[in-house]
Amino acid sequence: MGKLIVSTKKAPAAIGPYSQAVRLGNLVFTSGQIPADPASGEIVPGGVEAQARQVLKNLGEVLSASGASLDNVLKTTLFIKNMDDFALINTIYAEFFNNEPPARSCVEVARLPKDVLIEMEAVAYIP
């Protein structure tokens, strides 16, 4: 079975030469999701809390388009601009991953696309 490119209009379009996600067999690898509103392409206002929620919504939509869901996530990687925001991001993250949370890495980075405060990618399986 070859790789399948995943695309949905319910999440922000790729802003470069990459796919929103790639499915191979029953595994899904998402690209980093930023807190852009899928309809307008604009970054959501409201600081890191609003941005974290939008990132997780976008991630959920990409996974849904692949046949998976947030419940099927095996591993996430969070890229955040300020580690001082970690506690708040963690609280929001727990709302979306409250049952059997996935493995996770979180790194502070100097800069993210469009100067957002958070970006997240995931690896999931399709049941």
Rank of each mutant, 00 (worst) to 15 (best):
F79T: 07
K81T: 08
G47L: 08
P102C: 01
C106V: 13
V73P: 03
V109M: 05
V62H: 04
G60K: 02
D84T: 05
I80E: 07
E100L: 14
E61H: 14
A68S: 14
S69Q: 00
A87L: 15
Q51H: 10
S105I: 10
M83W: 03
S69V: 02
N82S: 11
T77D: 08
L63H: 00
L78T: 07
E42Y: 08
F96P: 10
G60N: 10
D71L: 02
D71K: 08
L78G: 08
E108C: 07
F86C: 04
L63V: 12
A65Q: 00
S105G: 07
E61V: 10
L70W: 06
N99Q: 15
K81G: 05
R111W: 13
F96N: 12
V48I: 14
P101Y: 15
G47V: 15
N72I: 05
N72M: 14
P101D: 15
N98R: 10
N72D: 10
E108H: 00
S66V: 11
E49K: 08
Y93L: 06
L70G: 05
A68I: 11
N72H: 12
L70H: 09
V48P: 00
Q54F: 05
R104P: 02
F97V: 03
F79A: 04
A103S: 06
V107C: 05
A103P: 01
V44N: 07
C106E: 05
F86H: 02
D85M: 11
A94N: 01
L74M: 10
V55Q: 04
N98H: 04
E49F: 03
S69G: 00
S64F: 02
N99W: 12
R111G: 06
E61P: 05
V62A: 06
I43C: 13
I92G: 02
N90T: 08
M83K: 11
P101N: 11
I80C: 12
S105P: 00
V48D: 03
E42I: 11
D85L: 03
L88I: 05
S64D: 15
L63P: 00
P102G: 03
V48T: 02
E61A: 07
C106M: 13
E100K: 14
F86E: 11
T91S: 15
G67A: 06
R111T: 13
F86P: 05
P102M: 08
E100W: 14
L56R: 01
E108I: 02
G47W: 09
F86M: 12
L59M: 12
I80H: 09
V109E: 03
L70N: 00
Y93T: 07
V73K: 04
G67F: 08
S69T: 06
A68R: 13
A110H: 06
S105D: 07
F79D: 05
F96I: 10
R104K: 13
Q51F: 10
